[in-house]
Design a binder for these strands. Structure first.
Length: 290
DNA sequence: ACCCAGGCGGGCG
DNA sequence: CGCCCGCATGGG
């Protein structure tokens, strides 16, 4: 148990870093007290709670963390050491990006566990964020391991999830994705070491993760971006497709492949950061298809 | 009641 | 290949 804080110098927006559809959206507990935003999340080493008032990032830890490891966990998870001014100078390519950066100044691409990210984004397909969140909470509650001296539970491992039947998983709100989750759990405990993808290139790691049934181009890119820190990943969902076509192609329909090539040329090496600002800004503006 | 949701795999032409 | 369709379920 302990408490500490980090003074944040560059732009940082903890709330939007968490709530912008990244994995923490799906399983962290969040609340707002006044203008301060709080969150609590569970890791294998214990529970981390954070609060941010615009200047100081306060955090506390339980479990086997110490002062040093807790600080490292918080800094890593929220990408505190990303040089935002440098990133913005490279993705602020036009008026739309400028307004997105302005609206969500300080939003970070967070770092997440590969298995958690894989499961969350398999659930995300043809689904809505609220329901994904509910499903994840039910899965944690039913299959997660309780931490010692805490009412919190750890996100269930692939080995724990594979013990559930497809019908069990469907009852947890997984719907038709239950068979994908079952396969992912079996594949990741028998055939694929998710840690081994860290040292692979983006394209090799993406190819490997797409061996899982239910992981296609978009979900794979989400896993590459949010779990493996591959900033060249550019997940293209309905919102990204809509906003790119609306803003950069005069409303004309484009193929996914063309949009990948467009992003690669426009934001080389930082496609993932560009995507996160495009995605969250497009949703807030409710850009419609015609 | 009705439409939609951070897509995907499979089947068909 | 590329295109197209069904898919579980609940939120709005």
């Amino acid at each position: 148990m302990g408490v500490n804080s980090i003074r944040i110098n560059g732009p940082f927006d903890m709330r939007n870093s968490i709530e912008s559809g990244q994995p923490l959206t799906f399983h962290a507990e969040c609340s707002t007290k006044g203008k301060n935003f709080h969150t609590k999340y569970v890791t294998p080493k214990g529970v981390i709670s954070t609060g941010f008032d615009g200047k100081l990032l306060k955090y506390s830890w339980e479990g086997s963390y110490n002062r040093k490891s807790a600080k490292a966990e918080v800094e890593r998870r929220f990408s505190i050491n990303d040089d935002m001014e440098s990133i913005y100078s490279r993705i602020n390519t036009d008026g739309f990006m400028e307004s997105a950066i302005s609206a969500y100044n300080g939003m970070r691409v967070t770092k997440n566990d590969p298995w958690e990210t894989t499961l969350c984004f398999i659930l995300s397909q043809f689904n809505n964020i609220k329901r994904i969140r509910g499903s994840v909470k039910m899965l944690i509650n039913s299959y997660g391991t309780p931490l010692e001296e805490s009412d919190a539970k750890l996100f269930p491992s692939a080995e724990q999830i594979r013990e559930a039947s497809i019908n069990d998983l469907m009852r947890h709100g997984a719907g038709f994705r239950a068979k994908y989750i079952k396969h992912a759990a079996e594949y990741c405990s028998d055939n694929l070491d998710l840690d081994s993808l860290h040292k692979m290139t983006y394209s090799d790691a993406k190819e490997s993760i797409m061996e899982i049934n239910g992981v296609g181009d978009k979900v794979a890119d989400c896993i590459m971006l949010f779990a493996y820190n591959k900033m060249e990943a550019f997940p293209i969902d309905v919102w990204i497709k809509r906003v790119l076509e609306a803003i950069y192609f005069d409303g004309k329909k484009k193929k996914i492949k063309e949009l990948h090539e467009f992003a690669e040329e426009k934001w080389p090496g930082l496609e993932g950061y560009a995507q996160q600002y495009l995605f969250w800004h497009a949703r807030s503006m409710k850009i419609k298809v015609k």
